[in-house]
């Protein structure tokens, strides 16, 4: 069974805190850091990991992730190199792994070839924000399904109810809930507008669980988000940890632990 589906199926009775999905850019800070970062995330307690495939023109990303993309590309990262780095990951990695990226490099690699490679390596899902839903449904869905790869869709505060229903109907795994109208890394925290948007989603009784991303950066925001969904996604804040780290393994583990287990008794 697909690891993402399995995770969400078991999640309710395993824990109550909310699942933590962490994004990092492949080949960042150094080309060969990919596997080390992935392992440290798993060891620190991340429930899912989203590996970003760097792209020259990441329109949905803010400055932090853009710069990590630029750096990773300078380091020599590419789809081919990434698949090579990940080829034996399932010997040590048991958490669900998603690849996130823009559609052009995937098209150039070849969608079918790409899905086949993902299945071979043990990648569970893809997040391709600029792949239109109709193109996915008409051209690629059967390919994704034949290799057991989930395609994760996004919803935003501007997504209409009808479209949310449509996305829910064609989604499997989870729905990536973008917290506010923004690119990655611009704002943080949950405000009153978001509360009503999250409540609206909750009241829709969707069949898919949701993870909330954009603006999640620490224990506080993770906890807030988890109160409104099955968990949260952290991206830019984690990239900043990688940027500043002198000891990747230690810093990654303590970041994840802090986000998940920051003592409840400490109030701000």
């Amino acid at each position: 069974m697909n690891r993402i589906k399995e995770l969400f199926r078991n999640a309710d009775h395993v824990q109550n805190n909310g699942l933590l999905n962490i994004y990092f850019t492949a080949g960042f800070p150094e080309l060969n850091d990919t596997m080390g970062v992935l392992r440290a995330l798993q060891d620190g307690g991340a429930d899912l990991v989203e590996i970003g495939m760097p792209y020259s023109d990441p329109v949905a990303d803010g400055e932090t992730i853009q710069k990590s993309n630029d750096r990773a590309l300078e380091n020599g990262m590419s789809v081919k190199v990434l698949f090579e780095q990940l080829k034996d990951m399932r010997k040590t990695i048991s958490v669900p792994v998603l690849l996130m990226g823009y559609v052009n490099p995937v098209l150039q690699y070849g969608i079918e070839h790409f899905c086949q490679k993902c299945a071979e390596i043990g990648v569970d899902g893809l997040i391709l924000p600029d792949m239109p839903m109709d193109v996915y449904l008409n051209e690629y869905k059967t390919i994704f399904e034949s290799y057991g790869i989930l395609n994760i869709f996004l919803v935003t505060p501007q997504t209409s109810e009808a479209r949310i229903r449509l996305i829910d109907a064609v989604s499997e795994g989870f729905i990536y809930t973008v917290s506010s109208a923004s690119v990655t890394g611009s704002k943080s925290g949950v405000n009153a507008n978001m509360e009503s948007y999250f409540s609206r989603l909750n009241s829709m009784n969707l069949k898919n669980p949701r993870l909330i991303g954009f603006g999640i950066k620490d224990h506080e925001t993770y906890k807030q988000a988890s109160g409104h969904a099955s968990g949260a996604i952290i991206g830019s804040a984690f990239i900043r940890v990688l940027q500043e780290s002198q000891d990747l393994e230690q810093d990654i583990k303590s970041f994840v632990r802090e986000v998940k287990n920051y003592p409840e008794t400490i109030e701000i």
Partner: peptide, 12 residues
């Protein structure tokens, strides 16, 4: 052609 935009731009 087509409209290959992230969901954030879809409504616009």
């Amino acid at each position: 052609g087509g409209a290959f935009v992230p969901e954030m731009l879809y409504p616009n």
